[in-house]
Simulated assay, not measured.
Amino acid sequence: MPRNGSAAGSTQTGVGGALSQFSRQSYAVDYIALGCLVAGWVLIQLFVHPFHRMFILDNKSIQFPFAVVERVSVVWSIVYAGLCPFLIFVLWAAMFRPGSHKVHVTVLGFFVTLILTSFLTDVIKNVVGRPRPDFISRCIPRKGTPGDILVAWTVCTQTNDHILQEGWRSFPSGHSSFSFAGLGYLAYFFSGQMHVFRPRADLGRCLLAFVPMLCALMVAISRLNDYRHDIYDVTCGSILGILVSYFSYRRYYPPLCSVKCDIPHDRKDADGFSRLAADEEQQLDDMEGETYRLGEQETSH
């Protein structure tokens, strides 16, 4: 008869093993994490105010006019970087029928990219609290406020709280990060499916793969034209979107220079990345062991 402790241990191991196997065979953990990101983003929108950094009225870098009508509004940025890529994925799935697993991980990675980028962008925006280039126009400072000393947000007479609070959310550019996240992920997907980074790839495929990046760049430049951000905000936001999109893409797909870059990883591969086959791991172990032995022989001689 097994002891109570061993029986409990075996039961615990069995439950833990079942949970581990479930998490590997499904994407439940990915969806739970995605849900947490969505909840965190919603809480930020509802309850978090940006840090109110002090400013100088005579600072010319924040004296640009406030654009009432933006070239690319928030809604249109969602359409360009969110809805359009998603519809492209739907069209691709309907035309080529790549299989449920491939469609699933592609769309899942896309949504992870958008939500993670939005969450990180808003966290940084609120913590930094950098005034926008059009901040003085938003603030409408009280008459008689000294222009050559640091003043606090209390000198502002703006009655629209949303316009005022957004004035401290300059860094990084949300339009830039979101655009390069959604359209950047689409560009990585095109590159992988068409083997753009393999030798002798034709120019036509390369140009098609980089069209989404060009569109994202146009959205980012529009933020400069509207004086919502400066080049520093836009550059950092673009880099953030590119990095997050590549991170999310690589969780589900091999490197773009791989021979099988168009085939997603199997779920059994740990943490979303391909593991070496057992024989390849054994070969590497043998090579390392041989190198170690040769090193010892040279040392002894």
Rank of each mutant, 00 (worst) to 15 (best):
M95L: 11
F96C: 03
G99C: 09
H101M: 10
H101V: 08
K102G: 03
V105R: 00
V105S: 01
V105M: 02
T106H: 03
V107A: 07
V107D: 01
L108S: 13
L108I: 11
V112G: 05
T113L: 04
T113C: 12
L114I: 13
I115M: 10
I115E: 06
L116C: 06
L116M: 09
T117N: 11
T117Q: 02
F119Y: 11
T121Y: 01
I124Y: 12
K125L: 07
K125S: 07
V127L: 07
V128F: 12
V128E: 08
P131I: 03
P131N: 05
R132T: 02
P133W: 08
D134R: 00
F135T: 05
S137N: 11
S137W: 07
R138D: 00
R138M: 00
I140D: 06
I140M: 13
I140F: 08
R142C: 10
T145C: 08
P146K: 01
P146E: 04
G147Y: 06
D148K: 05
T154M: 07
V155Y: 04
V155C: 05
T157S: 15
Q158I: 10
Q158P: 07
T159S: 14
T159I: 15
N160Y: 13
D161I: 10
L164A: 12
L164V: 14
E166H: 14
